[in-house]
Design a protein around this nucleic acid. Structure first.
Length: 896
RNA sequence: GGGCAGUUAGCUCAGCUGGUAGAGCACCGCCUUCACACGGCGGGGGCCACAGGUUCAAGUCCUGUACUGCCCA
């Protein structure tokens, strides 16, 4: 007997030990010059000061499954880890910490503040990395990157300068989304629209010539001072006569033109729109188009400007209240309605976003998008395909990307203005003097870049670009990007643009978008709802492998995952099952690896069967993972281990193993035992390798406990190749024969259970086989049935007849008869037979209906018809036999 | 308003290219069988949202309806 394992699997020590082993041995650090097809994945970099949440756990688990599987397939795998500086989010965290000391970032100053963020990062930055390790992620820690690293920052500057020189980055006035709390611009997709209950005010605008008025509808009366036009639909009969006239802005009295544009929705409100170019995106477009005046009435703090006249100095909210009161007093408020409408919020702090005109930097995304669009699906596949349309739609309607942020934490924009002559200088390094006038009095742009700007370079910047490194040559483009669909725009599309532009190759062959992890009732997990399930406490409680298996098993393409703690607990049982199967194996294996036997010619139906099943699983699991069907891969492993390997195979080999069982100490008995040991050892080993990508720790632990050849040392399962295929072990016929044996065993168990016979009580069994071949098969495998059905005797042959008082069943045409004695409730057997007969009857009717359908027989494929006919024959045979048995039994009952 | 998903057992979900509806959990019996009670054996439970259509055959393909969710405006 080999080493033994503790009775229950205890993940803590095991996980810690293997983590250390893999890190110390640099197991997952690949050599760029090593052979093997390159396979690389970049980590979606988490926020450097963040903490691991369930979304990360899902993402990392799926990537890890792919990477470990790719290694098994002999690929040269690089999984590069790293973190993101997360500009706004990190700055907010540090600002909050300052606020606790009663200070603002302005109090400490820019330089000191940035220092503070760096020390914050030094203190908390390792937390998320440690958590990635705790999840078992097989990343290459030697290639850890951070978006603010010197190398990556240099890449950012180089990209910025090149794009600027190519005219793809420009500076300009534009209406952007402004968060007055974060005090910064936000990109379009950083604004979250939420249905909000608001009001729709109907305000009367008098015509300047005094000839009347028109009523305009607005959700934001505080912007009235900024109005520079009133707009109606050109075909709107109600207003057509007014176009070209002039209206007075209520309260302020300023005159503005009445214009016509098809943009106006005639159905909405009154069909007349007030135009405030500085405070609404669509109005901005209208203002540009119609050459309107641009009047800014709200500043970047949300306070009314001098241009707002009597309302100057008020907050937006105060202004709204005052102005509506004033309108009412003047009799120009025509009405107020409730309205449900979408209001933009900052995705970081949830403050209502204000459209705001200012000078910002932009990437000409409109010009870079076409290449990113054209790359899909030819160069890059997006999976599930349902996201294709969304990707196209976004790129087709893209606006230029605002990349400047008025914060301090991030890559400072590499642009300087000469204070002497006003010349703008864009350069990778700070220039010493102005190239135009020679002045050394240069001021660097105060803004930093959008975090996603550096993230967009991630697939090549972390490989060393712009240096022409071996890593870059070897691992770009990457094999697949695995990420959540929520950052398809933020990140994926932008990496596509940048990768195509700078590398001339799309950054990934595949993009696999996984679902969001939700709570058991389908709600998004969030701290405010208090429904988060913390992955680390789950690992602590149930083990990492249980969590990973759960996430993998639920990762069906295109669907959200509803997670609850008891699911994880459930899969812990699975981990434990594997553990105990291994314990059983160890108790029955020799000290050293069992002597090999030829698997292709192995004797014993149960061995042939399990080897056949193993071949099927290898093929199916490989295919499932190649197609990102993670849930199928998990399911295959689960069912094979539990329902085939444990439930049947381990039970079937017990007679081969044990002393006192059939395996006598004869030469034949020894041979049987050795065969069983070898097949058990081999199947378990290969099964461990198959499960390893999903459950790295428990499989590693069991693997090193299994016996190896004398003089050899246990290897690391993480380095094991995918089990080789053995076409010679594929045996459909034997698998079908095994099903007969299993069917007989189940029939006996069912009879016992339903007639109230204790499962442990041994009974006699009579079998009347359908033919000679079946008889031989049953005879050969009588030992299996004796043990698993718990029989005291087994008689089989064509001359076997059922005693009147016996329970019975039919399996593959074979009559299964259990003579009854003692205190057995006979009526329940009659009920059981009737139920079985009814079931058969239903099936017979169904098949007959098909077969009697003329067009089915003539039109369906011949093989389908043949299969149905075969089925009909079998059903009728079974029915006839069962009816005869029932008749005999009924007689017995009558004689009682 | 536009787009995309989803609707299958009490719950959570699988069902790829149409051919006998599945799993896990929950439930009901029985079992301290020498790997595992985090276990074993057996069992009940579904007009596959609704209405049409294509087909010999539809959970699966098409059209429409009704809810639910997400994204975009």
């Amino acid at each position: 007997m080999a080493d033994t394992l503790p009775k229950g699997y205890e993940p803590h020590d095991v996980e810690a030990r293997w983590r250390r082993h893999w890190e110390e041995n640099k197991t997952f650090t690949p050599d760029p010059d090593a052979p093997g097809e390159p396979y690389s994945i970049v980590i979606p970099p988490p926020n450097v000061t963040g903490a691991l949440h369930m979304g990360h756990a899902l993402n990392l688990t799926l990537i890890d499954v792919l990477c470990r599987h790719a290694r098994q397939k002999g690929k040269n795998v690089l999984w590069a880890p790293g973190t993101d500086h997360a500009g706004i989010a990190t700055q907010n965290v540090v600002e909050r910490a300052l606020a606790r000391e009663g200070k603002t970032r302005q109090d400490v100053g820019r330089e000191a503040f940035v220092e503070k963020v760096w020390s914050w990062r030094a203190e908390y930055g390792h937390r998320i990395l440690d958590q990635i390790g705790a999840l078992g992620a097989s990343v290459d820690w030697t290639r850890l990157r951070f978006t603010m690293d010197e190398g990556l920052s240099a890449a950012v500057r180089k990209v910025f300068v090149q794009l600027y020189d190519q005219g793809l980055i420009y500076k300009g006035d534009y209406i952007i989304n402004w968060c007055s709390r974060c005090h910064t611009a936000l990109a379009d997709d950083e604004v979250e629209h939420e249905q909000t209950r608001g009001k729709l005010w109907r305000v009367r605008y008098h015509l300047a010539d005094g000839s009347g008025a028109l009523v305009v509808a607005t959700t934001r009366p505080e912007t009235i001072p900024g109005d520079t036009a009133v707009c109606v639909h050109p075909e709107d009969e109600r207003y057509r006569h007014l176009v070209g006239k002039t209206a007075r802005v209520p309260v302020l009295g300023r005159e503005v033109p009445i214009i016509a544009d098809k943009y106006v929705d005639r159905e909405f409100g009154t069909g007349a729109l007030k135009v405030t170019p500085c405070h609404d995106h669509n109005d901005w477009t209208l203002g540009k188009k119609h050459n309107l005046e641009f009047v800014q009435v709200i500043d970047e703090n949300g306070v009314m400007t001098a241009a707002a006249g009597p309302y100057a100095g008020l907050s937006k909210q105060e202004c709204r209240e005052r102005i509506t009161a004033d309108l009412e007093a003047a009799g120009d408020l025509a009405g107020v309605d409730d309205l449900e409408h979408a209001v933009g919020h900052c995705y970081r702090c949830h403050t209502v976003v204000e459209p705001h005109v200012s000078t910002q930097w932009f990437v000409a995304a409109t010009r870079m998008a076409p290449a990113a669009r054209a790359a899909v699906p030819e160069l890059t596949r997006i999976l599930p395909e349902s996201w294709l349309k969304t990707y196209y739609h976004w790129l087709d309607n893209i606006r230029d990307w605002c990349i400047s942020r008025q914060i301090w934490w991030g890559h400072r924009i590499p642009a300087w203005t000469c204070k002497a002559c006003g010349r703008l200088i864009v350069a990778e390094e700070a220039p010493a003097a102005c190239p135009a006038c020679g002045s050394a009095d240069l001021a660097q742009d105060e803004d930093v870049l959008d975090t996603w700007f550096s993230s967009a370079l991630w697939p090549f910047s972390i490989l060393g670009w712009p240096e022409r490194t071996r890593e870059l040559a070897r691992w770009y483009p990457t094999a697949v990007l695995v990420t959540g669909f929520d950052i398809l725009f933020f990140w994926v599309a932008r990496m596509m643009m940048m990768g195509l532009h700078f590398m001339k190759q799309a950054p990934f062959r595949d993009v696999y978008l996984h679902a969001l992890v939700r709570d058991a009732t389908g709600r998004k997990m969030s701290k405010s709802t208090g429904n988060v399930i913390d992955p680390l406490s789950m690992i602590d409680k149930y083990g990492c492998d249980a969590l990973r298996f759960t996430l993998t098993a639920f990762a069906a393409m295109g669907r959200d995952i509803r997670l609850s703690e008891d699911r994880i607990e459930g899969y812990r049982h699975f981990v434990n099952k594997l553990w105990n199967a291994a314990r059983f194996a160890l108790m029955n294996l020799p000290e050293h690896a069992p002597r090999a036997v030829s698997l292709e010619s192995v004797q014993g139906l149960h061995h042939q069967w399990i080897l056949h099943r193993l071949e099927m699983i290898k093929l199916d699991m490989d295919r499932a993972l190649a197609e990102y069907r993670f849930n199928d891969a998990a399911q295959l492993g689960y069912k094979f281990l539990w329902n085939e390997f444990c439930d049947w195979y381990l039970e079937l080999i017990k007679p081969d193993m044990g002393p006192g069982m059939q395996a006598a100490e004869s030469a034949e008995g020894v041979a049987r035992k050795e065969t069983a040991q070898y097949v058990l050892w081999l199947v378990l080993r290969e099964l461990l390798v198959l499960l390893h990508p999903i459950m790295p720790f428990v499989t590693a632990e069991i693997w090193q406990a299994l016996p190896v050849a004398a003089g050899e040392k246990a290897t690391d399962i993480a380095l094991e190749p995918y089990p080789p295929l053995r076409p010679g072990c594929v045996r459909e016929a034997e698998a079908c024969r095994m099903e007969l044996i299993q069917g007989v065993i189940v029939a006996v168990r069912t009879i016992k259970a339903e007639l109230g016979i204790n499962p442990g009580q041994k009974v006699g069994l009579l079998l009347h086989p359908v033919d000679q071949a079946q008889a031989a098969l049953l005879e050969e495998n009588r030992g299996l049935m004796l043990t698993l059905a718990r029989l005291e005797s087994l008689t089989l042959g064509a001359d076997v007849h059922a005693p009147k008082a016996s329970a019975s069943a039919v399996v593959q045409g074979c009559q299964v008869i259990v003579p009854l004695r003692g205190a057995v409730d006979l009526s329940s057997e009659l009920a059981r037979l009737d139920k079985e007969l009814a079931r058969l009857e239903k099936d017979v009717t169904g098949v007959n209906k098909k077969l009697s359908n003329e067009s089915f027989v003539s039109r369906a494929p011949a093989e389908v018809v043949a299969r149905e006919k075969e089925r009909a024959t079998q059903l009728l045979d079974a029915k006839a036999k069962l009816q005869a048995l029932r008749a005999r039994f009924a007689e017995a009952l009558a004689e009682e």
